[in-house]
Design a protein around this nucleic acid. Sequence first.
DNA 1: CTAATTACGCTAACACTGTTAGCCTTGACG
DNA 2: CGTCAAGGCTAACAGTGTTAGCGTAATTAG
Lengths: 168, 168
Amino acid sequence: MANSSGPTRDRIKSEAYLLLQEKGLAGLSMRALADRLHIKAPSLYKHIGDKNEIIADLQSRGIAEFAQVITKAGKTKRAKALAYRRWATENPHLYEVTFRTPLLRDRIPTGLEEGATQMIISITGKDHEHARAVWALMHGLVDLENAGRFPANADLEKTWRRAIEMID
Amino acid sequence: MANSSGPTRDRIKSEAYLLLQEKGLAGLSMRALADRLHIKAPSLYKHIGDKNEIIADLQSRGIAEFAQVITKAGKTKRAKALAYRRWATENPHLYEVTFRTPLLRDRIPTGLEEGATQMIISITGKDHEHARAVWALMHGLVDLENAGRFPANADLEKTWRRAIEMID
DNA sequence: CTAATTACGCTAACACTGTTAGCCTTGACG
DNA sequence: CGTCAAGGCTAACAGTGTTAGCGTAATTAG
């Protein structure tokens, strides 16, 4: 048929992003993605190599978005930390694929990961190791919260306040 | 056949534990588990309700083991923290199912989760919120390390030292 | 002791996953 | 105008958890 508006690689990846945000990582199947583009799943492979190419693209978008959000947040550590939490909470699926899924380093643009790391270091104002500990704290809080690890009656506002005290 | 040594529910769960430790969560399929017990996958359902019953049991074992290990570790915060890391690193699959998989609260013994929480609180010596932040820090470090999130040249010893400074 | 019931194997099947092989039509280009 | 690639398609494979239904061996009831 060679449809006049056949999905290009970019169109597929954009639609994957929307599908992820709506249905989550578990809902992001090749068939569901193909449905949205009004083609059949095997046809996707005329444009992309495999599903990991899509995952890698989503991770790239996630890292870039994340860097944007943190950079634009108020410049205190507290503001940055709360922006981290806010973004992660509002984009749980993107967070999952970006920070809870093995990073496909070979398939994301070079420098992207390093750039995000440098940004965190510039915020903490100290060395790599300190920055990593701070990142781990933020990530741990988000991860445990998103996984429903904290009891329902847990005071997360207060928990984050405590966490921010630790890094200040 | 009604095999004289037919697998009881407990035997299935124990074998699942071994299979998890050997092959990881992805390798823990009902068919692979059945193979080890020399039966076919559908026969498992004569003894257990569904796979989640197995997952819940593994989570229970994980929490119990974890509590044991941390309790028995030296009594300084530093010793406890290093024991946390050690256990997580040596049992990555059990850690994954216990702390990276949604907790099946309805199906684990009552009090088990709360007991583990109390233990952490007793170590930090402060309130629930502080304990949660400390836990999040440990978990975040382990999670990022296990997911290969830190660059290959990262000095993780130093990172943990920094983290321990934060909670002391 | 026999009859009935329960326990516990089995195979076949369903709906789902990512992915490959191979076919066919359409549009572009020499 | 013929050739060829682009990009659809269906059928299929191996894997996942799970259900239905069958058959037989062990246990229990009368």
